[in-house]
């Protein structure tokens, strides 16, 4: 197993973030802060703007108004994205289907020519072992299950040695056991290298199980933010309804 002791997380500040698509406002002036090294979960119902927000946090979208800062530097300023090491684990994994798992994991290192091929092969093997995918270097992504794809995507993120990792619905489409494995990976990673983790999810078990703080987002607005305990005690009707939601079989007529 790799042992990285350097605590490297970076802070993230979001101020007055607004975004519209086709005249419809999706994000209504969001303000929040993610502290260095914490696990911050953005929770909310489908269509609440969580994934759009996440894409802004890693610079894939440009806000209409407002500002996102990494360690007090605007994320869209020249060279900021190159200065900090960031990674995103996509809902689908985002693995390149034309490359093997090993090539995917080592892609950042090989494309930026940061290591020799031998070193890259060693790092790839280590990172895959870290996420329980030892020996899958030569497999194609299509040969992996949904959970394995997500773990391979986490291994790819690990190879970057990131200071900030963003996860988009890391446990969606996974069975409960695979969800626990992914959740464990996220927590272990956070404890091992102190990386700042921002997770978008509507999985209540995951959110309350691993988060240092949770923000509940609804219709593009943050309706509640705090520790899991504070969120559980939130008086906001939407939060209470979201947390209490459960399926009840209708009584037989």
């Amino acid at each position: 197993m790799t042992t990285i002791t350097q605590k490297c997380g970076i802070g993230l500040q979001v101020r007055g973030l607004r975004k519209s698509y086709g005249g419809q406002e999706i994000l209504h002036g969001l303000d929040f802060e993610v502290r260095p090294g914490e696990i911050f979960v953005l929770m909310g119902p489908s269509g609440s703007g969580k994934s759009v927000l996440l894409r802004h946090l890693i610079g894939l979208e440009v806000p209409d108004e407002g500002d996102i800062q990494l360690d007090s530097q605007p994320i869209l300023a020249e060279d900021v994205m190159g200065k900090y090491r960031m990674a995103m684990v996509f809902q689908s994994g985002g693995l390149l289907n034309s490359l093997t798992v090993g090539e995917n994991v080592g892609l950042y290192l090989s494309e930026h020519q940061l290591k020799t091929p031998a070193e890259i092969a060693r790092i790839v093997a280590e990172k895959l072992e870290d996420v329980g995918l030892k020996g899958t270097e030569d497999k194609m992504p299509s040969e992996l299950s949904g959970g394995m794809k997500k773990r391979a995507a986490i291994a790819r993120a690990l190879a970057i040695e990131p200071q900030l990792i963003l996860y988009d619905e890391p446990t969606s489409e996974l069975d409960p056991l695979s969800s626990v494995v992914i959740a464990d990976e996220i927590v272990q990673l956070n404890q091992r290298i102190g990386v700042t983790s921002v997770i978008v999810s509507h999985d209540r078990d995951l959110s309350f199980g691993i988060a240092d703080r949770v923000a509940v987002i609804n219709e593009g607005r943050i309706v509640s933010i705090g520790t899991p305990e504070e969120i559980r005690r939130s008086p906001d009707p939407m939060v209470r309804e979201f947390l209490a939601a459960g399926f009840k079989r209708p009584a037989n007529p």
Binding site: A87, M88, Q91, S92, L96, N97, E111
Partner: peptide
């Protein structure tokens, strides 16, 4: 078809998050 499917399945977004320019790659 290949680039379009990479775009639809977020592979190009993944490249951008790794600071890999899709035009170069």
């Amino acid at each position: 078809a290949e680039i379009g499917s990479m775009r639809v399945y977020q592979e190009i977004d993944a490249l951008r998050t790794m600071n890999i320019n899709p035009v170069h790659y």
